[in-house]
Design a protein around this nucleic acid. Sequence first.
DNA 1: AAGCGCATCAACCGCCCATGC
DNA 2: CGCATGGGCGGTTGATGCGCT
Length: 320
Amino acid sequence: MGRSPCCDEDGLKKGPWTPEEDQKLVQFIKNHGHGSWRALPKLAGLNRCGKSCRLRWTNYLRPDIKRGKFSQDEEQTILRLHSILGNKWSAIATHLPGRTDNEIKNFWNTHLKKKLIQMGIDPMTHQPRTDIFASLPQLIALASLKDLLENPLQAEAAHMAKLQCFHFLLQSSSMPNNNYGGAIADMEEATSLNLLNSIHFPLGNNINETSQSQLLHYPPPQVPFGFQTSLNNNEERTSKNSVELGHCSNFVVDHGDNLTDNSSSWLLQSLETPPETAAATLCNNPGNASSASSYNDTAAASPYWSELYFNDSIMHEIIS
DNA sequence: AAGCGCATCAACCGCCCATGC
DNA sequence: CGCATGGGCGGTTGATGCGCT
């Protein structure tokens, strides 16, 4: 079964196109249209298969092709459409005038996919990755943070690390799950400030403006595009939309009213163990967090993980 | 300057689907 | 209905360029 390839005839040229071949192809299509692609090469005097001609035309020679770097808007459009359509490059390309499916596919594979992976997002599902490998960068950063905090001679470095840790918390809390619907706005300070303000510091230890400013600019944002969050400052927080991270930190992140259960934050979603269990295990027995759950597996992989996230003294260090 | 590794992207390959006979 | 054909699509490859050692 199956059909023979269109390019299996001997003697047909493969590989990069020369300017002369391009010229012939463009001239022929300009004069006659492409008609049957299989018949075109002979008619145009090209020693190529029809398929090769079609690809060259659609991906490179078409007059309406837009070349050059993808804009921020285009990048966001691709991300949004990919989260809906998956690898339907041709369908995605119809929403990006002048861009070919091949170009979008290449851009995805060489840029966007890597960015998402670096951010801990599964590029196929657009969901946060919960496996241990996705958590490694955070684990390493947090382990380093603890080391820094334990060494008073490196106070300055520790301060920066604290800010980095909080920046990570910000990023984590602003990650929607496959919720690109609607506008994906650039990460703006206002959004970040809202998020900051949505974090309760019950000891009255709110982050001051200077720290906020530092926090918002350090380290340089790793998020290449922003996510619209539905965080707000509403003081009334329902149990449905507030998640308390155990009993240790009294640390509450508000998710607003219009997020579904399925769209809680990246950080919080990864903590699938019920708060009482996780918090009790992790806060009361930080060295004993090894029972079988995804969360505790993570904790077991790094003895610092639970302590850093939920130990009051650490959290107070961070926010002071 | 040479060698190496990595990133990029144009082009190819193989499969699938629609259509015509 | 079954087969042949053309066109389209997504995945993969390989040439090229660039940066680092």
